[in-house]
Write a protein that binds this DNA or RNA. Structure first.
Length: 792
RNA sequence: GCCGGUGUGGCGGAAUGGUAGACGCGCUAGUCUUAGGAACUAGUGUCCGUUAGGGCGUGGGGGUUCGAGUCCCUCCACCGGCACCA
């Protein structure tokens, strides 16, 4: 190795990657005296296309961070595995004619080799794969626990059926009326399905968000998704003595309620409808049930409905109210019925206008004039009814709830937008649901895993049955038929972070001691697109596991960060179809992995998105080449960089912890420039090498080897910065006149807090004298050590 | 429509209420070279000025402050989420 040569990035990469692996540098032990850190990446779905440069951004950041933490003396767990069940793998298999098991095997191999090329320090001894029966045994085990606790149940419900994919989809997997995967149309169809009762945990999922160190927008999205509304349930009696229960958040407007609306699918509709209306009613119900959610939701004002002919009584006024059905009332929310208050709810107002139903204002606001002919008045204000004369809305809601409760016609109540989780899929490539039917009972725990049979033909049947229904041998258990539906893709990812901790345990999901040692995850990094799917499901399962004593923390992920996307150079999302994909293999082949890693970290803030620009890489390459030369150059005789050295240590340390890698690199560049200009001491080189190691691990190992370091570079101790040593003897102090910069003074550090002296000096500045033009300053503001501002 | 987020040079981006544009790309000029898409040096927000210096400038408008990219109000644009949730 000749220090005058440029560093040959590409050639050394694989050598150091192998060395790390052989020396097991990234293997983590459970018993260490060091403080633990559990850093987790959202594990990848190994698709057939391999990685593009955007995929590894999160892994690069966590790897850099973990290398920093290790050097800082922590016991760091950083594992990776594969989320490999589910539709994409199955669709890929169907298209290519390969069995998904084979496809997954191949894709994982490809992904792993790409990831290894980046020099990422994962502990591969803990690798897991959701399609491994040793893994999904425990996914099934958790399902049994859910079943035992009544949290998994079957129901005949209208579901999102996708004829193209031949499976049902969860609401969250349907976007704008088409499947999220592939964009195929989705229709409504009643089917018997497995559901998970996530709604039973709605309140806890909502409340425990408060204590999480997550990006506020993600927490807000989960709050909105859970959608808690406080209000009341009120029972209306029909003239035929049927009870119709409605949910409202504005019980104070009860007196202004002039009609009722039931969802078309409400169970009382056929019972209360008058004979002459029943034909229209049925026709309308048919129409609604066939329509997808998208079709059913047209423009908001375009409301349709049919009068049932039945009448109810307003419990306060005793007035008769018509009862309608309309698609704008949803069967699955609240009680599936509403009391319409057209004066104070725009939707009701639209409907009332269209069908000429009465509009009766009961809330006013003295400062807001309102024309009820034009729209509803939805603001809070004051009640204007004989019963609640001039009471503020908030108070009126409370007092009305107590009146309702005293009158025995209802109670205060809470509704959630969150719905139970549709958990079955009519597809082959997923975890079999461990249930035997005739007994409708679970498979006993000790018989798990219920393995997925190796079928030749995995095409979905299209009649709503899973391909497993055709596996005759597998289907028939001694005591009855097996459940043929499989679990959705999200199942395996709900708990994988636990399995890394104890990947080979065949007796338990996880050993409690080990669990206590590592949980919770200190930092979880992944894309924001999982804000309400994976992250909510995983929190739900974790809370169930907490309730059965399998884990010791209420929440799995203490801190969350979302990496921004790397877009194509056209500013669009990187994708094969847009033809803007850049492959990391090519970049690494040309520049080496250190340059690639550093460039991705240098591109901008971690949580931001930015377009890929291959031209920009050259700056990083230059920087590393210069670093190589400086690190292997002759020592300077004197140590002239102490101040900048300590400044850099403090800045880099601080910024790594903030995941602000771009500014870390910028301060390293500044430090390097100083070393080039002033010469570098042994201590400078030591420090610079250590600070650079997490970012350019391969080159730094090489430098360390040439410099004959006793340990490996990645095992060196992180340097300590001393703020005292960064203080400059002479500082520049800006002088402003009327808030505009007019001069800069050189001030001794010791004088920088001397107000009188600073004033005096500032007034002597030539340019300041010019601007004063002989006038006396009105006021002089001196901020010690910062700035002088002269006001005239 | 509702809820979030973001707007700074040609580009990616820096900036605890205190010198806007750090750092990098690109560009311009130069040095070295047979050559260079290599390396190095200098310059680079914009307008005026030979220089000194000055005017303007962080999406638009207003405000608070000695001082605002940063705080407040309002409008606009783009991105993300939700979308008849009573």
């Amino acid at each position: 190795m000749n220090k005058n040569q440029e560093y040959e990035f590409q050639k050394k990469d694989s050598f150091w990657q192998k060395t790390w692996e052989e020396k097991q540098v990234f293997k983590v032990s459970d018993d260490s005296k060091k403080e633990k850190k559990y850093i987790l990446d959202m594990f990848p779905y190994p698709s057939g296309e391999g990685l593009h440069v955007g995929h590894p951004k999160g892994y690069l950041a966590t790897d850099t961070y973990c290398r920093f933490l290790r050097m800082s003396g922590f016991n760091v767990l950083h594992p990776l595995g594969w989320d490999a069940f589910g539709l994409p793998a199955e669709q890929f298999a169907l298209k290519t004619g390969k069995h998904p098991r084979e496809a997954v095997k191949r894709n994982v191999k490809r992904f792993k080799s790409q990831i290894k090329m980046l020099g990422l320090g994962f502990d591969w001894d803990r690798e897991i794969n959701t399609t491994d029966e040793k893994y999904y045994k425990w996914t099934q085990w958790i399902f049994l626990k859910l079943f035992e606790r009544g949290l998994a149940y079957q129901a005949e419900i209208p579901v999102n059926w996708c004829p193209e994919l031949k499976t049902v989809l969860a609401n969250e997997e349907v976007v704008n009326g088409v499947s999220e995967i592939g964009g195929h149309p989705v229709v409504r169809k009643p089917m018997k399905q497995w559901m998970l009762k996530i709604t039973a945990y709605a309140d806890r999922l909502l409340e425990d968000l408060d204590d999480l160190d997550w990006p506020e927008p993600i927490k807000e999205m989960q709050r909105n998704w859970i959608g808690k509304s406080e209000g009341a349930k009120i029972v209306f009696k029909t003239t035929e003595n049927e009870n119709i229960e409605v949910f409202t958040t504005r019980p104070d407007t009860l007196e202004g309620s002039t009609y009722l609306v039931l969802a078309p699918e409400h169970s009382l509709v056929s019972k209360i409808s008058s004979k002459e209306n029943s034909k229209d009613i049925q026709k309308y119900q048919d129409e609604c049930s066939r329509l997808s959610d998208l079709e059913r939701t047209g423009p908001e004002s375009d409301k349709t409905g049919v009068n049932t002919g039945a009448l109810a009584t307003n419990p306060i006024t005793g007035e008769k109210m018509q009862i309608w059905i309309s698609s704008y009332v949803l069967g699955h929310y609240g009680t599936g019925a509403i009391m319409a208050v057209p004066a104070h709810d725009q939707r009701d107002w639209d409907f009332a206008k269209k069908y000429q139903l009465p509009i009766k204002p009961v809330v006013h606001h003295p400062n807001l004039k309102h024309d009820f002919e034009k729209s509803a008045f939805e603001e809070h204000g004051f009640s204007s009814t004989p019963k609640e004369e001039n009471i503020a809305t908030e108070k009126a809601i409370e007092s009305m709830i107590s009146w309702i409760e005293q009158s025995n016609i209802g109670e205060g109540s809470i509704s959630y937008k969150l719905r139970d989780w549709l958990f079955s899929r009519q597809r082959y490539w997923g975890e079999p649901i461990p249930i035997i039917h005739t007994e409708n009972g679970p498979i006993p725990e000790e018989k798990l895993p219920l393995t997925l049979p190796l079928l030749e033909k995995i095409q979905p049947t299209g009649d709503g049955q899973s391909p497993l229904a055709l596996a005759k041998e597998w289907l028939n258990a001694k005591k009855g038929n097996r459940e043929t539906n499989t679990m959705p893709q999200w199942a395996g990812s709900c708990w994988y972070y636990l399995r890394y901790l104890d990947p080979d345990n065949s007796e338990k999901l996880i050993d409690p001691e080990i669990e206590k040692n590592w949980m919770p995850v200190d930092l979880y990094v992944g894309g924001a697109e999982h804000a309400v799917l994976h992250l909510l499901y995983a929190r739900f399962w974790h809370k169930v596991l907490y309730d059965i004593g399998a884990v010791s923390t209420k929440e799995p992920f203490k801190k969350l960060l979302n990496q921004g996307m790397i877009q194509g150079s056209d500013g669009q999302k990187m994708s094969k179809s847009r033809g803007n994909v850049v492959n990391p293999d090519e970049i690494i082949k040309e520049y080496g992995s250190d340059v690639f890693r550093m460039y991705e970290m240098f591109m901008g803030p971690f949580e931001g998105s930015a377009p890929w620009n291959t031209e920009g890489i050259s700056g990083i390459k230059r920087f590393l080449n210069k670093s190589w030369k400086i690190l292997l150059s002759e020592d300077s005789q004197k140590d002239s960089n102490e101040k900048i050295r300590h400044k850099t240590i403090l800045k880099v340390t601080d910024d790594i912890e903030k995941f602000s890698f771009n500014t870390c690199l910028s301060s390293l560049m500044i430090y390097l420039k100083n070393l080039e200009e002033n010469g570098s001491s042994e201590e400078d080189k030591d420090t610079f090498l250590k600070l650079l190691t997490p970012f350019a691990p391969h080159m730094c190992e090489e430098v360390n080897l040439v410099r004959k370091g006793s340990k490996m570079a990645c095992e060196l101790d992180w340097p300590k910065g001393d703020a005292e040593k960064t203080i400059e003897d002479i500082m520049e102090m800006p002088v402003m006149v009327n808030g505009k910069l007019r001069a800069r003074m050189q001030v001794k550090q010791t004088d920088s807090t001397n107000e009188n002296l600073l004033q005096e000096m500032a007034l002597k500045e030539e340019n300041v004298i010019n601007f004063l033009a002989g006038k006396d300053p009105k006021k002089i503001i001196v901020i010690k050590g910062k700035i002088v501002n002269i006001v005239i």
